[in-house]
Simulated scan of single mutants.
Amino acid sequence: MPRTVHTEDFQRTTQVKDTEYARTIPCRKVSISAPLHWLALGLNDFIRMPIISAFYGLCFTAAAVAIVQLVQWQGTHLVIMPSLVVYMLIGPFLALGLYDASWEREKGHKPSLLHSMKAIGRNSTSQWAFAVILVVAMIFWMRIAALLHALYPSVQGAPLIDFAPFLIIGSAVGAVIAALIFGISAFSIPLMMERRVDVMTAVFTSFNAVSQNKPAMIVWAFIICAGILVGFATFGLGMIVVMPILGYGTWHAYHETIYKKHHP
């Protein structure tokens, strides 16, 4: 005999445990101006946590300066991509300390440098798995770039029109890959740190949140790219300020966009 359907069947919510593998945690819709709010909150955290900000800012700066120096010493652009792969590998782990500091302030606790450093080891298995995903994606990007180099004019002093296929196709492919990498990484690391979820849950949740908030995330991606460009344009010194602010801002972006654990 068919089961009778009651109204409360549609009103009942089920609490899903964080241990469930490869699920998608719901997200909120945010306005296109939300990234400016995240940036302001990041700046406020930067000012209120000078020691922690300076420590991680100097770490990011040291890595950026090393890349700039390596390119200058080698005298070739061929070392730029491998260096960026290394930077993408260590960057998310350094950012964990910044996320933890913002999280501690959010909870009304007093952030400490030691506590933030311990956050780097929280859920390390999933974090390392995600780092490997980023490295594989960057290597794939490098291989695609090498193939596209065949479109580069072989004649010196070629007219600008001859560069069009290389520039148009290369830019289009690069934009697609960059968008995919940004989509899976925008919220993955803070989610793995706070809720200790598996790497695929973090990736699916991040990509879904970015997809549901395209206008705001395009603005946020532009802010991040502009900040990193400023950092490298100042020979890495600008990273002392830029990276902590962006790190704190990313935490606030995560908490405003992804539903919290106890308030689904």
Rank of each mutant, 00 (worst) to 15 (best):
T4F: 14
D9G: 02
R12M: 15
T13W: 11
V16P: 01
K17H: 09
A22R: 09
I25A: 04
I25V: 14
P26E: 03
H37Q: 09
W38L: 02
G42R: 03
G42N: 14
N44Q: 14
N44R: 15
A54M: 14
F55E: 14
F55S: 11
L58F: 04
C59H: 13
F60A: 04
A63D: 13
A64G: 06
I67F: 10
L70H: 07
V71D: 02
G75N: 09
T76I: 14
V79G: 06
I80F: 09
P82H: 09
V85N: 06
G91K: 00
L94P: 03
L94C: 12
L94G: 06
A95R: 01
W103C: 06
W103S: 01
K107D: 07
P111L: 08
P111H: 02
L114S: 13
H115N: 15
I120W: 03
R122V: 01
Q127G: 08
W128I: 15
A129D: 11
F130R: 02
A131Y: 06
L134C: 13
L134Y: 11
V135I: 10
I144N: 05
I144K: 06
A146Y: 06
L147N: 07
L148F: 10
H149K: 12
Q156M: 09
A158C: 08
A158K: 14
P159L: 10
I161W: 13
D162Y: 13
F163R: 13
A164N: 04
F166P: 02
L167D: 07
I169F: 15
S171P: 08
V173R: 03
A179R: 00
I181H: 01
G183A: 11
L191H: 02
M193C: 05
M193V: 03
V197Q: 02
F207K: 00
N208V: 01
A209M: 06
A209T: 00
A216Y: 01
A216N: 08
A221G: 02
I224F: 07
I228T: 08
A233E: 10
M239S: 13
V242H: 15
I245M: 11
G247V: 04
Y248P: 00
G249N: 00
H252I: 05
E256S: 00
I258M: 03
Y259E: 03
P264C: 12
